[in-house]
Design a binder for these strands. Structure first.
Lengths: 247, 247
DNA sequence: GACTGACCTTGATACAGATCAAAAAAAGGA
DNA sequence: TCCTTTTTTTGATCTGTATCAAGGTCAGTC
């Protein structure tokens, strides 16, 4: 993938479709196009960004905070199908109806682009389309990895898998420190975790307690988690590799 | 999506990345490029097309038959993460190592394109990249829909969901006949179904028997299935809509 | 036509996780 | 600060699916 990043974005961490901070910092030509079609929206924890079926006139990128994509059955059974962390993209060019409900699971800042002009930009700048394809393929891989978690892992392995993912993303963005203890804030309620993992919140709570008892993790309060040994956690997750930790 | 199909492929059912028969029939300019980089490979039921981790020098499109993408844990637990039906595409531009094991679940014919030239073609013909993005987004939606199946549906609902998908795809390609009984051949063993659904083959067998007993389906032999009333099956699948049946 | 092996079905039992219920711990709000 | 509400933990019990174990069916082959 590295070799496919277009020259325009080579040194730009704030590419419109993968920025980590604020897009305005980026000085590529394309951003001139985007400048007047973008705007920011913030949401507080628990607020809905949009509902499945809503008209969706924009695509967006997460600047900070965490959002979830969920699907709900008629009888209320809910499954989270994606977790949007900073730099993740939401919205589908060519479709103006939202397929999933998007909810802020923590305070959230999104950078939105009006859909039509964004689509035009994609059509006129092939390398952005290219970047978007890569990101979509990455998401597809993530979704498929999650299918293994949902279909074949035990409750304990599921929890460990989720904690690994969050720890990994947190470490990648912040003070990465391989081999040392890792502390991070869980951006999800027990219920949201359950919805992601296909479990009940009681089972999530029990397994969290079990991981704590077995000293795989330490809990400060209910949300602050310390992982003394990342390898142990990955072992509990049943991963056959380090899953690209810190990559 | 419809409006995004490029002019070159407007009337071409055999677009290289979405053909239904044989690509050679297509007379677009791009296909001249593809003509000398493509070749066909056939596999018999049960044969492996490639293993996860293999070097992968081509991308491919299913011409006929069915293949599966699977992921396996160290201890042997297996999860199917995708079902490749005719016109489906496999392979990722920009990555030459296969992430999943690809297996022919029935006799299979694939149309392969050498990877490097294919990537070049993508770079030089934006509308193919565009088409590929659309297809990837469709796959992502399918993967996410399957996450709901894996995470929240009961065994019976899972079986009904799988049968619906196969019936739908079969109907779309063949003699569609809404409102009438639908008969098709199951291209999967009970074990493959189990791997797709995150169940054991015994549970699959029991639920198939139950659906037969309840007259949701009829079995002729072990693989030939008749669905007298598609709506009933969709009801069993717990789908809140017709899921795009015949679309 | 009976032998073989792969695939499928059915039965008995075990167990992981769901469900129902209540208490404990935080988080707000007056 | 106390009171209310929400979130989390823990306990008791139930249930759907896994597991273990036979037996049945069918296609291919000698």
């Amino acid at each position: 993938m590295q070799q496919m990043v277009s020259p325009a974005f080579k040194n730009c961490e704030e590419c419109p479709i993968r920025h980590r901070a604020v897009c305005a910092k980026c000085d590529s030509d394309e951003l001139a196009l985007l400048e007047d079609i973008k705007y920011y929206r913030s949401f507080s924890a628990g607020q809905h960004v949009m509902w499945a079926g809503d008209q969706m006139d924009f695509v967006a990128s997460v600047v900070s905070g965490v959002a979830s994509l969920t699907q709900t059955m008629e009888d209320g059974r809910t499954q989270m199908v994606g977790l949007l962390l900073p730099s993740d993209f939401v919205g589908r060019p060519g479709r103006n109806i939202a397929t999933y409900t998007v909810t802020a699971t923590s305070d959230l800042l999104m950078c939105c682009f009006r859909r039509k002009p964004f689509e035009q930009m994609i059509d006129s700048t092939p390398h952005v389309a290219h970047r978007l394809l890569e990101m979509t393929l990455d998401e597809l891989d993530a979704a498929r990895e999650w299918m293994l978690v949902l279909g074949r892992k035990t409750a304990r392995e599921k929890i460990a898998s989720l904690l690994s993912i969050i720890a990994r993303r947190d470490a990648a963005l912040g003070t990465a420190n391989p081999g040392k203890a890792l502390t991070f804030e869980l951006p999800l309620t027990r219920e949201a975790m359950a919805d992601y993992l296909g479990l009940t919140l009681e089972t999530v709570s029990r397994q969290m307690s079990a991981l704590k008892r077995d000293q795989i993790i330490t809990l400060s309060g209910k949300r602050r988690i310390t992982v003394p040994d990342m390898d142990k956690l990955l072992l509990e997750a049943g991963d056959d590799s380090d899953g690209g930790f810190l990559i």
